[in-house]
Each structure stands twice: as C-alpha cells, then as structure tokens.
C-alpha cells in the first residue's frame, strides 16, 4: 500500500499578514514557511500507520505544488519520516489548478491524504477536487483513519457523535484535527537521512486557473476596550443595548 500526503507550504501561524501591489498580493518578505498544520498531522498519522501495520505500507510520499522556496518544507517532511517527495514546479494559484497538478502525481497511490484546509487561504477545496480528477471516492472531515487487516476504517465527526465508515482503495482522505495528536519533531537521524531521500522536481501540466485574486482586505482593527465603572450598571446596559447592540 502506498500513501501520498498533499502538503501546502504555508506561512507560520504567527506571521503578521501584510499585502503588496495595491493589496493584490501577499507580502512574503521575512515570512517563515511551515508545513500546513493539518497536512503535518496527516503525515504523522501515515507514519503511525506504517509503524503499526508492520510492512503493509511500503511507501509514504509527500507532494507540494510550489517553487524552489517550498523545498525546505518538503525536506522537513522527509526528515520527519516521509520516504520520497515531489515538488510540482509552479506557483500554487487556485484550488482547481493545485488539484489538477497533484492528480498527475497521485495516480499510483492507494491512500491520498489532504488537510481539510490550508492555513493560508482556507479554501477547503483541493481534496474534493482531487478525488474528482482521479475519479475515486473521497471522505471529508476524517478524524481517524485506521487499517485493520485489509480494511480501511474511517471515523468522522458528525453533529453530536461520530460515524464509522469504510471505503475501497484508492481514495482521498480529507483529514481534520484529531487524525493525530501532535506533529512529530524531526530527529537528528531523520534530518541526516533526509539528505539522501529523493526530492523529485516534476514539470507542471498546462492547467487553467479558474479563479484569481482581485484584492485582499485586512479585518478592521478591534475597537478600543471601554472600561465602565463597576457601580455604573445602567451605562453598561445602555452601551450593550445601543452601541454594541448585543442585547
């Protein structure tokens, strides 16, 4: 069995977001790039499954659509324990084009895992689109994925509980929090071995971008906090009623 993890190269979650070019482009200056947290959890779960199933999973690969700047992120995935990486050599433009590019690499895999969204644009679309391109099933909001004997067992959260389902391989698992407890920290041995693991650069296919960014807006800055004297309940009620309009 072979597993492919789709990895988005995203700004560190503490990045201060700025835009350039008249608010049409994200300013990448000084940004620290990381593996999208959901994708990192997917990779962690894949590694757990590989260890647990003792030889059943022959290979874990990672793939990302991005320029050379995405390579440190892929190298980290290799250091954490992936066996092989693919970088599709073009800029990630929109969900459709990313899914189309990944589909080219994903054909030979049995389980394809995507994070439920990427922490940069929160599109939540690549996983579903990818399964369409490949014409295989997809399961969304997967919070646990297991392999028992040769059966795939999936658990997904639903309102007030969970549902357990199974599917045939190949399929796309769109994973969310809970799929693994915590991402792994690469060990020295892993970092050293990552030097020798293949990081394949793949030429992109021709694909149309179906959407494009027109502009970005930052949320309005929070209004200053108003302090009201503890004795003055009337003023508090007035403000909640007339200004904040929450009561």
């Amino acid at each position: 069995m072979k597993i492919l993890i789709c990895i988005s190269n995203v700004p560190d979650t503490t990045t201060k977001i700025k835009f350039t070019g008249d608010s049409t482009e994200f300013d990448v200056a000084g940004v620290q790039w990381i593996i999208n947290p959901w994708d990192e959890l997917a990779l962690t779960r894949a590694l757990e499954l590989k260890e647990k199933t003792n030889g059943k999973i022959e290979k874990i690969s990672v793939v990302s659509v991005g320029l050379k700047t995405a390579e440190p992120t892929l190298r980290k995935a290799l250091a954490i324990g992936a066996d092989e990486a693919f970088r599709i050599d073009c800029e990630a433009k929109d969900s459709n084009s990313v899914a189309a590019q990944i589909a080219e690499v994903a054909k030979d895999y049995d389980i394809i895992m995507c994070g439920i969204e990427a922490s940069d644009y929160n599109g939540s679309a690549v996983g579903g689109m990818l399964s369409e391109f490949l014409n295989i099933p997809s399961v969304s909001s997967v919070s646990n994925l297991d392999i028992e004997n040769n059966d795939i067992l999936i658990s997904r959260e639903i309102d007030g509980g969970a549902e357990i389902l199974t599917t045939k391989i190949p399929f796309v698992a769109i994973v969310q929090k809970g799929i693994a407890i915590e991402p792994r920290i690469p060990s020295m041995r892993g970092i050293m071995m990552a030097r020798k693991k293949p990081l394949n650069v793949v030429s992109p296919i021709e694909v149309e971008n179906l959407t494009e960014f027109v502009s970005f807006e930052l949320p309005p800055s929070k209004a200053a906090c108003k302090m009201i004297d503890a004795e003055n309940v009337k003023e508090l009620v007035d403000l909640l009623h007339n200004e904040a309009k929450v009561i």
């Binding site: 390579e71 250091a79 920290i185 060990s187």
Partner: peptide, 12 residues
C-alpha cells in the same frame, strides 16, 4: 536548510 531544521526542532 539542515541548520534551520535543527533550530526549529529544538525550538518546537
């Protein structure tokens, strides 16, 4: 790249 990875691993 490796030095950065080690720094990040220690920080994490």
């Amino acid at each position: 790249e490796e030095q950065e990875m080690i720094r990040q691993a220690a920080r994490d």
